[in-house]
Structures are given as structure tokens and as C-alpha cells.
Nucleic acid binder design. Structure first.
Lengths: 231, 231
DNA sequence: TTCGCATTGATTGTTGACAACGTACTTGGC
DNA sequence: GCCAAGTACGTTGTCAACAATCAATGCGAA
């Protein structure tokens, strides 16, 4: 990991201030630090980061294009409020990308490294479920799926999926108890993993569709049963 | 080439300057006004738009995230140079999205409005082919596919596909003669249209895969036969 | 009261200047 | 002549102030 310093190419990742602000804000949005619907006041955030509005503005613009924020000209930028339609669209788009990734994987052969990564993710998920740490369950869940997409080695698919995964976490952090009672979650991912190694094309796709379908149903139930936060 | 505003705008409701600069630059990149690899000098562009660096900077950042530009911190922003791998990745990602859209369309039924739009696109394409206007052929081609994706009514799929389509145009404008000799292009789209209305799931997917496969082959041939521009 | 409207306050959009960084050139030494 | 360090230039990153726009409030008239 440690790279010997070379004169011709020191290339230390001189992270620009905008970049660090962007990732900080993104993390805070995903983890629920900024609740959906709240307005992102530029001067306020800039003060929090001890910087000026410039970098903050760039960060917000970027996150808006990633789908975590919504920008209205002259009105401001607010944290996205995901509707039921948005959630359905999210899972639909994720399924589209993940299926394509799986198709390529089954065609080219599943790398052993991916299997190891997925097994690790499942283990982490099981552990988190046992501890009822739903934050980590969600992280393991999305990590599992992102690993599958990344294994397809498509720069664009990976980038698009990462954006969709972030939006999904934004939708989930409102419903921290979403995973509660879904004891079948670990089994479902184990099943996906098994089908992925077996190479059973049709069964794998069916399982993925059911998997996302279950997630949608669970989300809807929780949303219906819990009072929606004021918008 | 220079298309001035058609009117002194008394009622431009609320398009921010950044937005208009963004679309202007995007159009110019796609149409080849800024050749791939060239650096986007902020002050230069700002002078061209008679504005300051602020809006230009925002526009460039946005286009970079759309994939048309690549940004290196402290070095500058350049027009993306698409490699062969990029082209393959583009078609792979497009196929992933378009297949998902088609699946939903065949499941829910193809809207009549879509059929009309596609027929119109094919007519325009045939006309452009007859006139050997490859710029319009490319526009009709991408319009055809974008219409299919839009008909699936998925906000995220449409947005992602639009970005991929723009990148495709960026790759095509280097090879303006790409379509030359592809007299089968109109037939292929007619075939896709027919299969879409017939609802033949499997045949439609096969046709789409062949369609993109043909495009890839043609692109590769042209790139191999023509001297690659220095990078 | 209630509707309409001007005014106020706050926030975003834009600008020009300053600072930091990378690149290319020049200069000195071998 | 060639290489290396130092330097100068150009570009990007950041900042603070100015202008434009929107939401909210208060006032007055029907």
C-alpha cells in the first residue's frame, strides 16, 4: 500500500477543499445529520467548516446532481425527500444495473475475490443483525450489492450504482427500524451468493427480483405504519 | 453556427446564468466545438460568455460529473477522450438501462405515444441517411433509444441514459463517417420497433444486443482504420 | 375580516481580487 | 552537452463583498 516517493510522480492526492467538504456533507446527509427537507444554508455550513461559501456551494451543487439534494434556483438547496415513487424507482434502477452486472459475471465467470468479499459482507451482516445494529446491517447490505456491481468492472455502472446506493441509504435512515423483523435478510443474501457461484442464470435473476421486491414491500409497510415526518 | 438569442428575453423566468452556460458548453462539446483532450480555460470561456469565472466553473464541474469532462485538481478540466474501453463500457451501460426499460414496457404494455415517436424517429433517420447527413442520423438514432427509456417513466433511468447518450455523441462526433455504409441502420431500428409492438420479449432482447454489438464493431473498425488523434 | 400590495429581511447568484499550486523555462554546475 | 535546481508564469482554488431574487410581514382599503 505504501508507495515509495518518486520524484517524477509524487502526486499526493492534493484533495481540494471542495472535495473534502463534499464527502463530509455527503456522509452527514446519508447518516441523517441533515434531515430530509431541511434547507442547506450556505453561510451556515460554510461557518461550520470554517471556510467560505465557494467550496460549500460547489459541494452542494455536486450532491444535488448525485441526487441527495434538490436545487431550486433562487430558492435554495434542500435534502431530498424520497416519495414512495422515488423508492420504487430506486429499486427499479438498482435492479436494472445489478442484473446487467450479474449477467456479465455469469458470462465471464465469477471472480474468486468477489465470492470472498460477499461472504465477508454476509458475515458482517449476520453479526450486525445479531447485535441489532441496523446501521451496520444497512451498510453490509449495500456493500454486498455494490461489490457485485463493481466486480463487473464497468466504470459507469459502478458510479451510477453508487449514487443509487447513497440515495437508498438516505431513504433508509429515516426508517432505522426497517430491517427489524427481517431475519430472512441474511438468508436471502446467502441464497444470492450461492446462486451466483452456481451460475444458475434464471434462478439468480428470480432471486434478485424477489429480493428487491421484498425490500420494497417492507419499506412500504414501515412507511404506512409509521407517521410520516412533516415535510 | 452562432445562434444568437431569438429575442431580447423580457420573460426568462428563472434560469440561472450557470444553467445557460452549462447547456451552451454541453452543446458545444457534443457538437465537437471543443475537441477531446483540450483544456477548458476558465477565464477564456468566461470571457467568451461575457461573464465571470463563477458560473463557468460551476458549469464545468457539472459537465465533469456528467462524464463529458474530466477534472484533475489544480491541473484543470479537459474534454474527455474516450478510449475503446470507454466505448465498450458505454454500450454495455446503455444496454443495461435500455433492456430494463424494454422489460417494463413489455410488461406494462407499450404506449401508443411511444410508437408514434419511434416511427417519427425512424422516418427522420431514413431521411437523414438518404441525405448522408450523419449528424442528423446520430441525433435520430439516440433520440430513438432515449424515447424508449423515457417511456418507461423512470426518472433515474432517463437521467442516467441521457448522460450516457451525450457521452456516446461525444465519441461519435470524432468519427462523423461512422454511420456511412451502415445502410442497415434504419432496418435495424424498424426491426426493434416491430418487436417492441409485437411484445416478443426474447426476440426483442436479442435484437437489441445485436444492435449494440453491431454498433461496437462498426466503431472499432472505424477507429482501427483511421489514425487515432494524438492524446 | 380578508384581500391586495408595498416593504423588509434573509438567502442565493455573481463578481473581481488574492493565494496556492503545477508547469515550463532558465540558469548554473558537472 | 546534459542534468538538476531555482525561478517565473499561467491556471486553478479560495475568499469576501455586491447585486438580484424570493418569502414574510405589516399596513391599508373594500
Amino acid at each position: 500500500m505504501s508507495e515509495p516517493r518518486r520524484r517524477a510522480e509524487p502526486h499526493v492526492p492534493k484533495r481540494t477543499l471542495s472535495a473534502v467538504v463534499t464527502s463530509q456533507i455527503r456522509e452527514r446527509i446519508i447518516s441523517g445529520g441533515y434531515p430530509p427537507g431541511s434547507q442547506m444554508n450556505e453561510v451556515e455550513i460554510a461557518a461550520g467548516f470554517a471556510t467560505s461559501r465557494g467550496p460549500v456551494r460547489e459541494a452542494l451543487q455536486r450532491l444535488a446532481q448525485e441526487g441527495l439534494l434538490v436545487a431550486s434556483p433562487h430558492k435554495g438547496i434542500t435534502v431530498r425527500v424520497l416519495t414512495d415513487d422515488d423508492l420504487e424507482d430506486l429499486y427499479f434502477a438498482r435492479a436494472a444495473i445489478e442484473r446487467a452486472a450479474m449477467e456479465r459475471l455469469t458470462a465471464r465467470g465469477t471472480p474468486a475475490a468477489l465470492i470472498a468479499t460477499l461472504e465477508q459482507a454476509v458475515r458482517l451482516m449476520a453479526l450486525a443483525v445479531a447485535r441489532q445494529d441496523w446501521q451496520r446491517v444497512s451498510a453490509a447490505d449495500l456493500g454486498f450489492h455494490q461489490a457485485i456491481v463493481d466486480a463487473a468492472r464497468s466504470e459507469r455502472l459502478s458510479a451510477m450504482y453508487a449514487s443509487l446506493a447513497d440515495q437508498t441509504r438516505l431513504g433508509l435512515n429515516l426508517l432505522v427500524t426497517t430491517y427489524k423483523g427481517r431475519t430472512d435478510l441474511v438468508e436471502e443474501h446467502e441464497q444470492l451468493l450461492k446462486l451466483l457461484t452456481s451460475g444458475d442464470h434464471a434462478a439468480l435473476f428470480d432471486a434478485l427480483n424477489r429480493h428487491f421486491g421484498d425490500a420494497m414491500i417492507t419499506l412500504r409497510d414501515h412507511r404506512d405504519n409509521s407517521p410520516a415526518p412533516r415535510v
